[in-house]
Design a protein around this nucleic acid. Sequence first.
DNA 1: CCTTGAAATGAACACGTGTTCAGATAAAAC
DNA 2: GTTTTATCTGAACACGTGTTCATTTCAAGG
Lengths: 197, 197
Amino acid sequence: MARTQGSHSDITGPRIRRAALSLFARHGFAAVSMRQIAGEVGVQAGALYNYTPDKQTLLYQLMREHMEDLLSARETRAAVAGADPLARLEDFTRHHIRFHIERPDEVFIAYMELRNLTPENFAEIESLRRAYETELETILRDGVDAGVFTVPDPRIATYAVIAMLTGVNTWYRAGGRLSLDEVEAIYWDMVRKLVMV
Amino acid sequence: MARTQGSHSDITGPRIRRAALSLFARHGFAAVSMRQIAGEVGVQAGALYNYTPDKQTLLYQLMREHMEDLLSARETRAAVAGADPLARLEDFTRHHIRFHIERPDEVFIAYMELRNLTPENFAEIESLRRAYETELETILRDGVDAGVFTVPDPRIATYAVIAMLTGVNTWYRAGGRLSLDEVEAIYWDMVRKLVMV
DNA sequence: CCTTGAAATGAACACGTGTTCAGATAAAAC
DNA sequence: GTTTTATCTGAACACGTGTTCATTTCAAGG
């Protein structure tokens, strides 16, 4: 019986996911073959099927893991945040940027490879994404109700803020003109003005 | 000699590009075969090579055409706009939304398939994109110089506004809750506040 | 030391890939 | 009516695809 401590399989699964993640992000899901992934892990293609039922599920699991990490991290922070909508919005803004910058491959895949999911898997990922968006939308609505925010349409402001924040991933490079702290501050300034009364 | 008026080839080239555009947008460049494109046009795969040297160039031409349309449309409007930065920014905002919403397939491809371009073709497309971004950045800098805008960093505000505006394409559907005019107005409101002094 | 069984191999399957090209087709040019 | 010529076909090439599975490997359990 394997799968006791230190068994090979305990380490191969994650290695496969890491290889697939990096290759999918670099070349795209459709352009990466199971043989390429296997080669990166140092194994024959057939061996991958001890860890995943098929290529599509491999992609789905990567996306799902990412979205669940995102949601649970958000919930953790929401629990410690106070009731002030402005403080909650600042926390959301800064955390979104930092979380996404730390996971460029996962973020890239989660946005670009949605169309390679089966309809059922797509629905699953989409519902996780909607849950995350609802976090922000709730903050905005609470702020509007409390009279501290003025947004023309909370639903659309949610889309706008998330698109704006996620856009950081397309241009930010560590060691560039601005530190991550500065980027956070600049975006928070823009978001704050965007919702300002 | 063909290629006089009404020749077959005058109409087949555009038909191929339209079919490729739609298929690339739906399934992704790597997942679409030359035989699928040919099938959509009603022709054998070999015939495509009378119109394009290869699949990669077909993608490049679609992207290039789109980016050049975007830039020349922008230049046309910039020529008639006045000197008031606020009016120029409003025009940019509304025009960006409308132009992009009218071309969802082109926009999708231009964002998602960059990694399938050769380095030379990628550089070409990127330089067109930078030129477009510079249009907005110039408006923002002029507004800051004139004292009518306050943005923490014009370069980053450019990225932020473009990401925010292009995000409309991910959720807007004709016949939904909001008309395109309303969407334009809502986004202009948010952009205006974002750069407000 | 022998048994057990999870994990890896490597070949095979059936089919799809981008691209090429000799030959057929048919419409325009003269 | 004949020649010219752009266009299209259909087969071929060399190789890559995801996935399966009988067989081998080899470390842990007893």
